[in-house]
Design a protein around this nucleic acid. Structure first.
Length: 268
DNA sequence: GTCCATGTTCTTTA
DNA sequence: CTAAAGAACATGGA
């Protein structure tokens, strides 16, 4: 559920509610979700939350004692609630912040809660798509012959895109998802770079996409799914040319595109 | 029962 | 070395 726009929306709604607050208690309701396994989370009690940031799809919570990383995986929800509200099933962590409580719920448990301390944990992900110039994207795409769809899902190449926004950006740029990343020409990269930024900004403005699980810190869903042009629209008419949207599997993921607007570069 | 799912990582195979 | 494909993780919805 959470790609860059969803994570950004979570960060923007969590931040104003928790910054400046003191951690009074940390409650982990299962012992195999948080890492490192031997970290004593009770050591955070008394610390002050200084900030909440996003890096790619990761949420970084800065405290006076060090950093906490939250990755939402597929079904993670980071919410801020009244402590008296009933605790949802699959809530694995609760941070008592006084009058409010920050909760991490994740049914599928693909996400994680990780104590960073003073380490940076940044080197293993690529640049931020909203600020990377087209030339930078061009350089990175040139290095791999993988399908451009697969390449854009690689967090080391670019941090933050997932299955929805890659499909949406490729459609907006008129690029076939199976085209080799290294063969994407200068003109296409220009369109792609603009499309990625535009799609992400619009999705953030809409509060992200809610297909099933995603909600922001206040429990509100996003609205961008209503504006999807290809994602989960297989068989439905392209909003631009009315051609039925096609669905194929690439890199093990459902891939949606318009055969008319995103012509294959391979000679058939 | 089946298939599918907004993510990541590891293994196998070529 | 590259990369493609598959499986794995765990849960729930259609």
């Amino acid at each position: 559920m959470p790609e860059l726009p969803e994570v950004e929306s979570v960060v923007r709604t969590v931040r104003p509610r928790v910054v400046g607050r003191q951690v009074r208690r940390v409650l982990l309701t299962r012992d195999d979700y948080a890492t490192p396994a031997n970290f004593a989370w009770s050591g955070l009690v008394g610390s002050i939350i200084d900030g909440v940031r996003r890096r790619g799809k990761r949420i970084l919570i800065d405290t006076s004692r060090g950093g906490v990383l939250v990755h939402l995986g597929m079904t993670g929800r980071l919410t801020v609630a009244d402590p008296r509200e009933p605790v949802a099933k699959h809530t694995h962590a609760r941070f008592d912040l006084g009058e409010i409580e920050m909760r991490l719920c994740d049914p599928r448990r693909f996400g994680r809660l990780h104590w960073l301390g003073a380490s940076a944990d940044d080197a293993d992900v690529g640049p931020e798509p909203l600020t990377l110039p087209a030339a930078g994207l061009a350089t990175r795409l040139k290095k791999t012959k993988r399908a451009v769809k697969v390449a854009l899902l690689d967090q080391k190449l670019l941090a933050g895109l997932g299955n929805i926004y890659v499909d949406e950006a490729l459609h907006a740029a008129g690029i076939h998802p199976r085209q080799a990343a290294s063969s994407v020409d200068r003109q296409q990269v220009g369109r792609l770079s603009g499309a990625i930024k535009r799609v992400l900004r619009r999705a953030i403005d809409a509060g992200g996409s809610t297909l099933r699980d995603y909600v922001d810190a206040d429990g509100n869903p996003g609205a961008f799914q209503k504006l999807h042009r290809v994602y989960a629209r297989a068989g439905e008419p392209c909003r631009r040319c009315r051609t039925p949207i096609a669905r194929v599997v690439l890199g093990g993921r459902s891939t949606h595109f318009c055969p008319q607007c995103q012509p294959s570069v391979q000679p058939t």
